[in-house]
Every structure is written in structure tokens, then in C-alpha cells.
């Protein structure tokens, strides 16, 4: 599979900073293919989160294009981008960010857009991620690792084009963190998604296909 599902072309972003502007992303280009798992590392404040926000259509770049599954959505209205995110982008956050009042199966079923996609079933995902026995539990009754696995299931439930993971191991210990990244990798491969992960955790980089380093607004291969 060589289809490019996520493509950033010449993306630049700067923020006002005291007595000038600081260029956080400087003419960045990036392409991630179906089935490819890419990691972005870099020091704190290097703009990793900004890059992920732009790729996730949460933030508009000053210039450049973001193409997801062949669609350029940057110029759409915010409500259209919101609807697009639900179908085409799977997010995994630092902490699980599950809704505290929903049981696991409802986290998936109430989020699933059945008109758009019913090929992925909640049961299959829970089974793949080894958390079928958590289907009727609230987040408060699960371990950190289990919650993060439910969050992974939620990211995949609408069969999106790309998966964006923001420090998915930040709230977990080393063993569990590694296990969670393995699961992201396996699902990405199995379901043919383009996955982009921002991380500090160098111990999981061997699980990715490519590692990119973000320093001084530039992206370099390692």
C-alpha cells in the first residue's frame, strides 16, 4: 500500500511572542502512507503539538496545505471541519479523555457514525485490544492502561483515514506505555491507517516505521 493518506505541504506557523513573532513551524512538508506509523520527537516547546493540531484541523497554518485522504479541508467552515474530523481523523490524547459517564461500549457506540460507517464493530475493536471484559465498565472502574486502550478503540471506531496520537504514553508506566503503542501500531497496520504520534518517550520509538525530529521549526529524519 502506497496511498498517501496524510500530507502536509510547506506548512508554516508562527505565534506572536512578546516583542516579535516566533516561527514554530517553518515550511514543513510531510507525507504518511496507509499502514505507516510515524513518530515525531523534539524538545518541549518545539512545536510538536502545534504540528499535530494543524494535521488534526484544529488549528490553521499561516500558509501551506493539509490533505487528509485526498481532501483539503483547511478553508472549510469550522462546523464542516468538526464533522470531517469525526469521520476521517482518530485522536488519541495524553490522557484517555473518555466521557466519565459512559460505559466502554457506549463510548464507542454513541460516538460511531453509523450512517457513514458500520464496517468496524465495537466488539471487534474491544476484542483486538483485549478489553472485551471492560465493555460494561465506567472509566473510573478501569486501570490507566485499559482506559487508554478504550481511547484507542474510540479513535478507530469510525474507520478514519488517519490516527493522530498526542503523547499516548504520558500517563502510563513503561510497560503499559509500550503495550499501548504496540496496540496502536498493530491496529494501524491491520486497518491500513496513516498514524502520526508525537512523543517524548524514546523507549517506544523502535515500534514506529519512521522517526522525525522537530527542532527550530524544521523537521529532520533520524
Amino acid at each position: 500500500m502506497s496511498d498517501i493518506l496524510l500530507q502536509l505541504n510547506n506548512v508554516t506557523k508562527s505565534f506572536a511572542d512578546g516583542n516579535g513573532t516566533q516561527t514554530v513551524l517553518d515550511d514543513i512538508s510531510l507525507a504518511v502512507k496507509a499502514g505507516e506509523f510515524v513518530a515525531i520527537v523534539g524538545p518541549s516547546g518545539s512545536g510538536k503539538s502545534t504540528l499535530l493540531s494543524i494535521a488534526g484541523l484544529l488549528l490553521s497554518p499561516d500558509s501551506g496545505d493539509v490533505i487528509i485522504g485526498g481532501n483539503t479541508m483547511l478553508n472549510s467552515k469550522s462546523n464542516i471541519r468538526t464533522a470531517f474530523r469525526r469521520k476521517h481523523i482518530g485522536f488519541i490524547f495524553q490522557t484517555h479523555q473518555l466521557l466519565p459517564y459512559l460505559k466502554t461500549k457506549d463510548q464507542l457506540l454513541l460516538f460511531q457514525d453509523k450512517e457513514y460507517n458500520d464496517s468496524v464493530t465495537a466488539n471487534d475493536l474491544l476484542e483486538d485490544l483485549g478489553i472485551l471484559e471492560c465493555a460494561n465498565k465506567y472509566p473510573a472502574n478501569m486501570s490507566g492502561g485499559e482506559r487508554q486502550r478504550v481511547a484507542i478503540a474510540r479513535a478507530f471506531i469510525n474507520d478514519p483515514d488517519i490516527i493522530l496520537a498526542d503523547e499516548p504514553t504520558a500517563s502510563l508506566d513503561a510497560t503499559r506505555g509500550r503495550y499501548v503503542v504496540e496496540l496502536i501500531r498493530n491496529q494501524t497496520k491491520k486497518r491500513g491507517k496513516a498514524a502520526l504520534m508525537v512523543t517524548h518517550d524514546e523507549r517506544v520509538l523502535d515500534l514506529t516505521d519512521r522517526v522525525l525530529h522537530l527542532t527550530d521549526g524544521k523537521l529532520r529524519s533520524m
Partner: peptide, 11 residues
């Protein structure tokens, strides 16, 4: 702003 879902104290 949905962007607050991403990143902790990174920016």
C-alpha cells in the same frame, strides 16, 4: 476551543 484537547504545557 477544541485545540485545548491537544498538548499539556507543551506550547
Amino acid at each position: 476551543d477544541p485545540i485545548q484537547a491537544i498538548g499539556g504545557n507543551d506550547e
